[in-house]
Design a protein around this nucleic acid. Structure first.
Lengths: 220, 220
DNA sequence: AAATATTTTTAGTCTAAGCTAAATTTTATT
DNA sequence: AATAAAATTTAGCTTAGACTAAAAATATTT
């Protein structure tokens, strides 16, 4: 009852990693929504994953799930695959950053460690993927991120876009239209204290006013 | 009950295609051996595949299976994926021809049509993969092969190696040692009528004597 | 042509992973 | 604190795809 990490299990672990990143356990409902399955299915899987040996998740009834050390390693492995693949699809096959997610989601489960090493080497062991997300290292540790949300900047402050959160292609294309992509230089020209809107000068683009829905997803 | 071609089904179709290429239906036992499953499992799957609509295989009890037009299309799609992937792994990631098979076997089921188009274009729409096998075209027809086995050549005849049959890495490395790889120029210096051995001059390699086990698998 | 061997199929089980509907527990609201 | 709402779990069912053991069909040998 060990070592066979099905595609489905890998997906659960990846989402639990993500949802519990803030320290709070991942809830059944949130997992169900992310995975596109019924809540009852999640309960069943969490019970299984906490009973295999070694356990992959820590689960107590009605209290959600977190990952064990083994579970986290497995999650980081998949995440490393995913982010390396995204980087590589963009760099070698001309995918755009809004197109890569789906493809990487399918490939991440089937590539060999050899394949992983080859693309990592070919890309020069990149630190971030096309969205700016940090790529877990080969020994499966997640580098720590010292970025902060654009929403936390105030008038006069500036920064370089490091990371954009979210996988929705339409959202990503919108950001691209504003120039808000990793690497962009951003100057805050005004802050509206009531709605939290920021007026931004992004590189040499025309100035734009963006709301919290965007500034909370962009990190500098 | 249509259109969901699982990985397992794709594997069955691929093997049926291969085993029935000579015109005779693929037998239950041969399929079981190729797929690494029990014969009873094959029977079950053949029944299913012949009952879905549209049917993917033609199956009569005790008489093996052949593909329907739909089944063949599906098989060619997977085979195209496989062979494009092999070509591409060799050309862009430095895999050697004896290493690519396994990786391609896993990737072939998950790549999108978009991915297929991109690598085909990046490779310049190749006609053969690294083993010389023909790659089905984008409209899913298999080009016809005008090669013949090296075993059919006689003293004084010559040819260019076009294709090598077989996926066993050790076998492929052996052939590579002899220079018998796609593109090699071969001259038959002698034919032994009793054992079928050929004495070959391969490019500028030292002459070698090879048996039928090899000359039947190499095509010129 | 009968006997044996091989191949294939049937019948019945198992596991992973999902589902729905109903029951329960926790959280939020009066 | 009682009730309503939301979240979660249980129970029982379904499907794909495997398995084994036994039965049946086909092929081979004497």
């Amino acid at each position: 009852m060990s070592e066979i990490l099905t595609q489905s299990i890998q997906d659960y672990l990846k989402q639990i990693y993500d949802l519990s990143a803030d320290g709070t356990p991942a809830s059944t409902n949130d997992l169900a929504a992310r995975l596109g399955v019924a809540p009852a299915s999640v309960t069943g899987m969490l019970q299984r994953l906490s009973n295999v040996s070694p356990a992959l998740v820590v689960y107590k009834k009605h209290q959600g799930a977190t990952l064990t050390v083994e579970g986290e390693r497995a999650a980081l492995e998949v995440i490393r695959h995913h982010r390396l693949l995204e980087t590589w699809l963009v760099q070698t096959l001309g995918y755009t950053w809004d197109e890569v997610h789906e493809e990487a989601c399918r490939l991440e489960h089937v590539i060999s460690e050899d394949f992983e090493r080859r693309i990592a080497a070919a890309l020069g062991n990149p630190v971030r993927d096309p969205h700016g997300d940090l790529i877990p290292t080969a020994d499966l540790t997640m580098p720590n991120d010292d970025t902060r949300p654009l929403a936390s900047l105030r008038t006069g402050e500036a920064g370089t876009v490091k990371r954009v959160h979210g996988a929705d292609p339409a959202f990503l294309r919108h950001l691209q239209g504003l120039g808000l992509v990793p690497g962009a230089q951003v100057h805050v020209q005004a802050y509206s204290e009531f709605d939290g809107n920021l007026t931004l000068q992004v590189d040499s683009h025309p100035a734009c006013v963006v709301g919290l829905a965007i500034t909370k997803q962009v990190f500098v």
